[in-house]
């Protein structure tokens, strides 16, 4: 088990490297570097910059170094000192800006993941066991619909409905009086009141996908001989299904974190922009539009790392759940 754990972590290293290269590539993508952007914006506001100062800044940021060296400086800064570079739009180090936002992204994603599991597990089992029943058809239909509605359209629709019929605006994670307040039961309750819309919006497509996967897997498992064996022992139908096929069909369910999590983080990004949540998404978009590339790159890097960790966790959970993986 420990060997397996170690192997998984080692396998992550090259992927992690790849993700950091992609993030750095995106930082470098817009024409010019961020000093040129800085100059442009200063010129807009009528300021001028001393050429000597400019040269000094170029040297500090290593803007004239070869690409590989620049990448090395950037990534070593992050790994060794937690220095993600400087956001010129905010005039602050990136590291001061991102952690709150990433924390919120993570919490909303986790909440959505819990929602996805809690909803899809019972419906998936029901659908597989009562195949072609009315309930199954209803679930399948909503599953297809859930897969077909893009997150942001669902978010807009829910916003419109709640605005029109409940007369309230549903953006954000907190009501104005709780923003920045200390944690209290009231604040938690307020968070819950706001969280359900983003969670439903983000979780719907994942739920639909998982229901389909669980239904297909469980249908396969239900026809396996070991199910007949379990019945032949004299177990009741409920126990037969829960202890045997469901136990095995759970494996794809757990490994689903691996691909549901990137999907959820993607979903949070765009949904957050529509619903104006204090997560990474809106800030990332703003950074991208204003070409505040170190900030944007850091977000992309961290989101990538987050999904990798999610995959690692799912692999480990799967190994715990399935002895066949643990022993090979």
């Amino acid at each position: 088990m420990w060997g397996y754990f170690l192997k998984r972590i080692l396998l992550m290293v090259p992927t992690m490297f790849g993700i950091s290269v992609i993030s750095f590539f995106i930082i470098q993508l817009p024409p010019g570097d961020y000093l040129t952007s800085l100059l442009a914006s200063m010129a807009d506001s009528g300021q001028t910059v001393d050429p000597a100062e400019l040269a000094r800044m170029r040297a500090t940021y290593g803007l004239d170094d070869p690409m590989a060296l620049q990448y090395f400086k950037w990534i070593s800064g992050i790994v060794l000192r937690g220095d993600f570079g400087y956001s010129f739009e905010w005039g602050r180090p990136v590291s001061e800006l991102i952690w709150d936002r990433m924390g919120a992204t993570l919490s909303v994603s986790m909440a959505a993941l819990v929602f996805v599991w809690a909803v899809s597990l019972p419906i998936g089992i029901y659908s597989a066991v009562r195949r072609h029943s009315i309930g199954d058809h209803v679930a399948t239909f909503f599953g297809f619909l859930g897969l077909a509605i893009p997150n942001f359209i669902l978010a807009l629709t829910l916003m419109y409905i709640s605005y029109k019929y409940f007369g309230q605006s549903v953006g954000g994670l907190f009501s104005p009086e709780y923003v920045g307040a200390d944690w209290s039961w009231g604040r938690v309750w307020d968070l819950m009141k706001h969280l359900w819309i983003p969670v439903i919006v983000i979780g719907t497509s994942g739920t639909a996908a998982l229901i389909r996967i669980l239904r297909a897997n469980l249908t396969d498992e239900l026809s396996k001989p070991y199910v007949v064996t379990a019945r032949a022992k004299g177990l009741s139908e409920y126990k037969v299904i829960m202890r045997y096929p469901v136990r095995i069909a759970l494996n794809p369910f757990v490994s689903a974190i691996g691909w549901v999590l990137p999907q959820l983080i993607s979903g949070v990004t765009i949904t957050a922009i529509v619903l104006n949540l204090p997560t990474a998404g809106p800030l990332l978009l703003r950074a991208l539009v204003s070409q505040d590339m170190y900030l944007a790159g850091s977000f992309i890097l961290l989101m990538g790392v987050l999904t990798l960790i999610g995959m690692l966790v799912s692999d480990l959970l799967l190994a715990l759940l399935d002895p066949r993986i643990r022993f090979t």
């Binding site: 993508l29 979903g267 990004t269």
Partner: peptide, 17 residues
């Protein structure tokens, strides 16, 4: 690596450029 990246942030990054 590309399939490990959350797609929308990556799309945003590329499209913004």
């Amino acid at each position: 690596v590309t399939s490990a990246m959350p797609t929308i942030p990556l799309w945003l990054g590329l499209a913004a450029a």
